[in-house]
Design a protein around this nucleic acid. Structure first.
Length: 474
RNA sequence: GCGGCCGUAGCUCAGUAGGUAGAGCACCCGGUUGUGGUCCGGGAUGUCGCCGGUUCGAGUCCGGUCGGUCGCCCCA
């Protein structure tokens, strides 16, 4: 639970190779593109130039790109456990795993997520492929999942289509605590039902997983209606009128939002705006009858499920496709971010993607944030159980075979590969985190047994080789 | 995209008024020719992120650059 240990590994850049300080300028550097044979042409306009002669890009750059990181052990065990726990607890509610491509046609996001959103507007990793098509590294997964459902006619088979996913997403923002350019999400989507009961199920599944994971989430809930003059569309007019009338009291950034996306003024952190928004008309007071009763039904289901929530009429979400139910899970330990995840209903998404009307609801949780927010695991994956210590030529020749036999019986085993002394092997065994040292030498081989040492207590016993597996079984 | 702070050994960090680098932990060897984690003795380690400037001399001052980190915007 020490949140500190969840950090991705800081990237250092060991740029030793061929620095100008290098006393042998002619020293061969096999893959160095800046090698003498191909001098860098000078820039035409002296402005932006030769990055840094001391740090040529390429093989000498051992640091991953900004905002990405290598997940090393032991942190990698925690992540894997968190992901496994998520997929298991989604599966138990009937959500089957789905995998979609890491990149999609850019239109999937432009049309699905919405061109007006921040995500599509300025955070996407978009690039042309060799055929000139515009592709984008996925910034979220709801739109791709809907694309896949429509593309494979999954909704023709059984409704609702219940799917779960886990994997990396990409957004080009300035990294900070809990926010990376490549980050991981786990989530579910329930497609094809308008029932408020499924809204409650989805929310409960997310809430339960977070609690099982050791995160203590706060659930914020709201309904943002649907696009209809009698509902959100009409409300937006009221809101805009109100904002315009109070324009002089708003912060400059928020004045711009009036025309772009008036709902977002509720997200403002400017104290003057917050004061104004306190008296602003609320979406929940302007819902149409259908949306209102849907919202009430969702709440009554949640109460029956004993999922506690806080109504937040100011909660709006960043992606354009949301309708009706909107929710967010927040938690501590996340620095300046406090959202571990969020989701909502998206009844218009399928049509935006060119399909038929197909309602849906889902959520995405930030795995990195779950880890930061105190993910604790009972999962014992990690070091293997036994380390084979070999003494003498005969044993050394057999060590790998002995470890292999243990493994075949389901017992994790490791051994020395550096010709270490007995002492060195014992040390390595301790360092590996194994509980048992299985010591084999000439004496043991002669008597067909092994010396088994419990590294946690230091106690030692002799065990017949035939009994070893059953002795080590948990 | 914008702003603050930071960049010295594998790790955490110290470095005094500019005078050619240090601690703890980790690591290696030995005390124990078949036994780790304790103890004792010994040992190795850095082009002080990079480029350039000031200076007789720069880890230390100045500029640039790259990177990290935290925050803003926004979001997971």
């Amino acid at each position: 639970m020490p949140a500190e240990s969840t950090e991705r590994v800081p990237r250092k850049r060991p740029d030793q190779t061929g620095g100008p300080g290098s006393s042998q300028p002619a020293e061969p550097r096999p893959h160095d593109p800046t090698d003498a044979a191909a001098p860098i042409p000078p820039a035409e306009d002296g402005t932006e130039r030769a990055p840094n002669p001391a740090e040529p890009p390429g093989p000498t750059e051992l640091a991953p790109p900004r905002g990405t990181g290598d997940i090393l052990p032991p942190e990698s065990w925690r992540r894997q456990a968190a992901t496994r726990l998520a997929m298991d607890s989604f599966a138990i509610a009937g959500y089957a795993p789905i995998e979609t491509p890491i990149f999609e046609h850019t239109e999937v996001f432009e049309r699905g997520v919405g061109a007006g959103s921040e995500v599509v507007g300025k955070e996407m990793y978009t690039f042309p492929d060799r055929g000139g098509r515009s592709l984008t590294l996925r910034p979220e997964l709801t739109a791709p999942v809907m694309r896949a459902v429509l593309g494979h006619n999954l909704h023709r088979a059984r409704l609702p289509v219940k799917l779960a996913y886990a994997g990396p997403m990409f957004r080009q923002e300035r990294p900070q605590k809990g926010r990376y350019r490549q980050f991981s999400q786990v989530g579910i989507e329930a497609i094809g039902s308008m029932s408020p009961a499924i809204d409650a199920e989805v929310i409960e599944v997310g809430d339960r997983y977070l609690r099982e994971a050791g995160v203590e989430p706060t659930l914020l809930l709201n309904s943002i209606g649907h696009l209809d003059p009698g509902c959100r569309t009409g409300y937006l007019e009221h809101l805009t009128e109100y904002l315009v009338a109070n324009q002089s009291s708003l912060a400059p950034v928020d004045i711009e939002r009036i025309s772009l996306n008036p709902l977002r003024t509720f997200d403002s952190k400017e104290s003057r705006t917050i004061e104004v928004m306190r008296r602003a008309p609320l979406i929940t007071d302007h819902l149409c009858d259908d949306c209102r009763s849907h919202f009430e039904a969702v709440q009554s289901h949640l109460m029956k499920l004993e999922v506690s929530y806080t109504l937040d009429p100011h909660l709006v979400r960043g992606l354009d496709y949301y309708t009706r139910t909107a929710f967010e899970f927040t938690a501590g330990g996340l620095g300046s971010q406090n959202a571990v995840g969020g989701g909502g209903r998206y009844d218009g998404l399928a049509e935006s993607l060119g399909g038929q009307h197909l309602p849906g609801i889902g959520f995405a949780l930030g795995l990195d944030r779950i880890l930061l927010s105190g993910f604790g695991s009972k999962d014992q994956s990690g070091p293997v159980a036994a380390y084979v210590v070999a003494i003498g030529t005969a044993a050394v020749e057999q060590a790998l075979a002995i470890a292999t036999r243990l493994r075949a019986a389901g017992i994790g085993a490791d051994l020395d590969f550096l010709d270490r002394s007995v002492k060195g092997q014992m040390k390595d065994a301790a360092r590996s985190g194994c509980r048992w040292a299985v010591i084999v030498g000439d004496e043991e081989i002669a008597r067909n047994n092994v010396t088994l040492k419990d590294l946690s207590t230091g106690e030692q016993e002799t065990v017949a080789f035939a009994e070893l597996v059953s002795r080590l079984e948990p």
